[in-house]
Design a protein around this nucleic acid. Structure first.
Length: 345
DNA sequence: AAAGCGGGGTC
DNA sequence: GACCCAGCTTT
């Protein structure tokens, strides 16, 4: 039996009943695909359900404020996905009367939709013969066909895409594509795959060469940048504080945070007081003290944020102050959300 | 071609 | 601690 036949047959038995598998409506498939980029299915499910409930149609999403979208996205990470999602929803509603295009070529032009997502939507929603290549597919193909080209090199990406097109089954492309990814997620797992019980073990090149554990090959290049964040948590007599929206490029764009003093290294309270006026306009603080004695390290995949929260008691009432009890309404990074959760004055 | 972009699960 | 996850965009 062929590679694709075995995948289809396996999928028929092991298909999980995921929420987005009850439909082929482009809006819902799109939503699920964007959320699942670099994200495990289990982590994405609750967000998907929340979004479908809050925004049943693309017009509903288009009509929302970006802050609302980011708030519901909070905790899922890679927030450019949420910003692009919102921008594309507005574009589809305004320019396409709320109807998604049905070809790879048109889909891939949309913000936040790249090769993978355009292929997934075209095949799943419209039965178009497009091959998907996600992390699962890279792994399955690399092992079964014994390909050791790095999956994160230009050459590797092009090779695997071509290979995926060669072996796809266009007679049932929806199930084939989803089946191949499901197979990677459940059977051909990154660590300790069950090769004994694998329906593809006979033809698997990696298994024959005892190379399962070294495939796929990936060039690693993780340089982790250390940063030192000092958040200034102002508190006035009304129990109000200040938040700022992060602007420009970099992490957490358009999310909110406390006024930030970033430094080259860990600093003392004296230095915080000295630099206070650079970050916030304040008549005169009555007291500045450290909230977390032990600096906490918030780990992103490419940055370690050594973070301290400083409580700054304000002498006068803050202008544009936000009630501490209202902080939970703003979209914030998990780092800030955890602080807000724990903060008791 | 390479870097930047989150947060969480798994081993 | 290392690796990975239904990747995309910018440089």
């Amino acid at each position: 039996m062929s590679f694709s036949r075995i995948i289809l047959q396996w999928y028929g038995v092991h298909k999980r009943p995921l929420p987005w598998r009850k439909t082929r409506e482009p809006y819902l498939i799109w939503l699920s695909e964007i959320m699942l980029q670099q994200t495990r299915v289990a982590q994405g499910i609750p967000y998907y359900l929340t979004f479908v409930k809050a925004f049943p149609t693309v017009e509903d999403l288009a009509a929302a404020k970006e802050d609302e979208v980011l708030k519901l996205w909070q905790g899922l990470g890679y927030y450019s996905r949420a910003r692009n999602l919102h921008a594309t929803a507005k574009f589809i509603a305004a320019e396409y009367s709320g109807v998604f295009p049905d070809t790879y070529k048109e889909l891939v032009k949309l913000k936040g939709i790249g090769d993978y997502t355009a292929s997934a939507m075209a095949s799943i929603c419209f039965d178009k013969p497009e091959a998907v290549v996600d992390g699962n597919v890279f792994r399955v193909l690399a092992r079964y066909f014994g390909v050791d080209l790095p999956i994160n090199s230009s050459e590797g990406i092009a090779f695997f895409k071509e290979l995926a097109i060669k072996v796809m089954d266009v007679s049932n492309i929806r199930d084939y594509n989803q089946g191949l990814m499901e197979f990677g997620a459940l059977q051909c797992t990154p660590k300790n795959p069950d090769c004994i019980g694998c329906p593809l073990n006979v033809g698997c090149v990696a298994l024959a060469r005892d190379a399962v554990s070294i495939l796929p090959v990936k060039i690693k290049k993780n340089k982790i940048r250390k940063r030192y964040f000092n958040y200034l948590v102002l508190v006035d007599e009304n129990n109000s504080t200040l938040l700022q929206q992060r602007k420009g490029p970099g992490i957490w764009r358009n999310l909110y945070e406390f006024p930030l003093l970033e430094t080259e290294s860990e600093i003392e309270v004296k230095e915080v007081v000295k630099n206070l006026s650079d970050v916030i306009a304040l008549e005169e603080p009555s007291e500045v003290y450290l909230y977390n004695e032990k600096q906490l390290v918030h780990k992103l995949s490419h940055q370690h944020l050594h973070t301290r929260f400083w409580i700054v008691l304000a002498e006068n009432k803050l202008k544009n102050g936000i009630k501490i009890t209202d902080l939970h309404k703003y979209p914030v990074p998990v780092l800030i959300a955890d602080f807000i959760e724990a903060f008791k004055i």
